[in-house]
Design a binder for these strands. Structure first.
Lengths: 218, 218
DNA sequence: ACCTGAACACCGTTCAAGT
DNA sequence: ACCTGAACACCGTTCAAGT
């Protein structure tokens, strides 16, 4: 019943082993992107990385731990892009800020669409580990910071739920759109912006008690 | 490279074999709901259904075909509930209708939350087969019908995209919320309603050329 | 027409032997 | 400290033999 750990087994201590870990991760991303989940197996990853299967298991306790590391790296890239956008639009109007966030989310997903989609699928399937949770929380915190900058201070509880919903809405639209033929970034970003702005506006107007505090800054 | 078919191999012709198929599907749903994807394997399904593994493969060409059948049944239940709600709210105001749709979506997901979530995960992973596509299209068509009833006629192209986005938004919020502790249905439905109404309102207001036609009925 | 279950294949993982 | 690859275990799938 004890399931295998989902974090790297140990950190590499010598430069050659650091290279091994890098090669394994790069091979894993490449195979996922090129061959999909069907062709994604540990033997193929080890072969492409040019190491033996034993070496892979020296650094990763299992296939899922490898996948989780790819997911965390992907999240960290999104976090960096998001933080930059939040910083950049600090003085801007809400609509402009939301447009920037929508663009970041769309660009992130469409950079390597297949890999991004498969990592999302695996993320849904896998339990969230400790440090994955930290990165996800940091992403949500960026959205909360953005809301604090562009809205009058509502109560904390709502800020958290609101940030989570905005992220879920963006992900829902982008993931669904990305299942079909590659969509136009600009059009897709506009649809995401509509959804985000609309949610905020509705929340503001619909719930007299709860939403009162969420007002655009003067 | 030719991947196995994802539809049932053949229809049962005798009553005992119909019972076999039913037992297999029921066992599959039960195991998914109780043991998760980890415990979901064809040997366990056959054992719980009380049939040999060979019988399972007589009716389903593979594990994924079994899963796809569960997904299609789930979609058909959603379609029926959605069609009833669309019919029921035909004369109602837009806000009331959206609230009804949000409730249908939330109730459907929270009926058997774990099973619903795992089927969603598998649905993302699996290619959409012919008749799965038909059911999904029928669900989207219900949303389009709803929009036609409650909004002034916009152009067709936009109706399709709008319906798809509304579904994606609802799914994004509900799936994400359902990952954590079981959320309150009423609160969750309200968040979904906000998101749906907000998207429609934004689309209406933000895009002078494209959105002009989407106006609430007088 | 339907059912059975041993056998096979593939792939995740381990471990004894190396450098 | 790191690497190797044969061996093992689990599970999806097939197929020859039944009723």
């Amino acid at each position: 019943m004890t399931q295998p750990a989902l974090f790297p087994r140990k950190a590499p201590r010598q430069s050659r082993s650091a290279a091994t870990v890098s090669a394994i991760l790069e091979a894993a991303a490449h195979i996922l992107d090129q061959r999909g989940l069907e062709g994604y197996n540990t033997n193929a990853v080890a072969a492409r990385a040019g190491v033996s299967i034993g070496s892979l298991y020296q650094y990763f306790p299992g296939k899922d731990a490898l996948t989780v590391t790819l997911i965390r790296r992907d999240h960290e890239a999104l976090l960096a892009a998001l933080a930059a956008a939040v910083e950049r639009t600090r003085g801007a109007r809400l609509a402009e800020g939301l447009a920037a966030l929508a663009r970041v989310a769309v660009d992130h997903q469409l950079d390597r669409p297949r890999l991004a989609r498969l990592l999302d699928i695996e993320e849904d399937r896998l339990p969230i580990s400790r440090d994955s949770h930290a990165t996800i929380a940091a992403i949500a915190a960026q959205v909360e910071t953005f809301l604090e900058q562009h809205l009058a201070p509502p109560d904390r509880e709502h800020l958290t739920v609101t940030a989570a919903d905005l992220l879920a809405i963006a992900r829902g639209i982008i993931d669904t759109a990305a299942q079909g033929p590659i969509p136009d970034r600009h059009v897709l970003a506009r649809r995401v912006r509509w959804a985000l702005a609309g949610y905020l506006e509705q929340m503001n107007g619909s719930s007299p008690g709860a939403g009162r505090g969420v007002q655009p800054r003067p």
